[in-house]
Design a protein around this nucleic acid. Sequence first.
DNA 1: GTCTATAGCTGGATAGAC
DNA 2: GTCTATCCAGCTATAGAC
Lengths: 213, 213
Amino acid sequence: MINPSEPTDWREGRRRSARDAIVHAAWALVGEVGLAGLSLRDLARQAGITTPTVYAYFESKNAIYDTMFGHAATEFADRMAEPIDGDDPRDLLVAYVRRFVEFCTGDPARYQLLFQRTLPGFEPSPEAYAPAVRSLANTQELLALNEVTEARHLDLWTALITGLVDQQVSNDPGGDRWTGLIDESIDMFLAHSQQHPTRKPSPRRNRTKGPRS
Amino acid sequence: MINPSEPTDWREGRRRSARDAIVHAAWALVGEVGLAGLSLRDLARQAGITTPTVYAYFESKNAIYDTMFGHAATEFADRMAEPIDGDDPRDLLVAYVRRFVEFCTGDPARYQLLFQRTLPGFEPSPEAYAPAVRSLANTQELLALNEVTEARHLDLWTALITGLVDQQVSNDPGGDRWTGLIDESIDMFLAHSQQHPTRKPSPRRNRTKGPRS
DNA sequence: GTCTATAGCTGGATAGAC
DNA sequence: GTCTATCCAGCTATAGAC
């Protein structure tokens, strides 16, 4: 396979590893100065090169963000796709959410890039975005195992889980004030979803008001 | 009361209204270019003045953000403090949450400034922050009326509600995909909180795993 | 591919005339 | 208080030698 007259393979390899080194430096930097605080000067210094060299590998700053986004999305998909031992549907769900929250809280900058859209002028390319979509299907399967299939409940689920993550990241970084509520949250959610398969004003008691506007 | 030799009153008034005009222009701008996209040049142009004039009223850009924060916080506190008719605790809670979500989705930039801490280098002053604190106590009272008093449930509550708002703002701005889940979310939350006054592994069924780590 | 040097721009903030 | 003019720092991005 090795053919000296066709050295594109290892050249590509070198090019890839150089790109990876830059992206690696970028992750290290945003961990310190925040996602929006990344500057190409500092990035070049961190990577041990100069600014123009960065442009030998990336055509723009947003291209770097996009590559970072792709890395993060792949990392996310891989992490969430790892098999979980056990066969109880609810336990699977709990383990899955723990994983999700750990992933999010493990690197706030990565979380911000992947799930909050706060970078002005940056939109991830479809290629970079693809792995994240794959993972959503994964969630649906797990919920289906727990007899949760309605779109409404899926939305309620995402709201609940992202709410936990958001509160944890913003108000108690590094702590467990909200991650400690995962188990209870899932109890709450499943009790509700499995009990209300179709939407009607819950028969809790007589409503005092007429139908909602 | 009116004393020509003491004209500080109306001068203060003029100064206040000039400041208000600048802040007003600032809100209009951030509504277009995003909170972080505000620049003093554009702000001055929007307000029909020049950049140095801005500095006649504010000592820095962050001072403008701080004033905006104070306005938003006051607006928020006032809105949430308006009386709600009805006496059923749950209905009060529903109305309250609707109000909250409407306030948040009504102006995403305002929401971002008040509740997400995404402006690099900006921290609201204690004075500007005070009204927001007042409102939190309000929430606690409403939950207490619904027999929800434990700190754990309060955290679960904030996660649930902010999750709804966040999903609505980020993924369906202007729509009702998540706001339409408010009623159901509150059902879910109250059913759980009122049923689990103290924490123990829910007696749903036998757990397959040992105690959590 | 990597560098030095710098263009070109935009940002916040200030000096000083009026 | 308001302006013109400007400073200075930071940024992305490029030109051109090696």
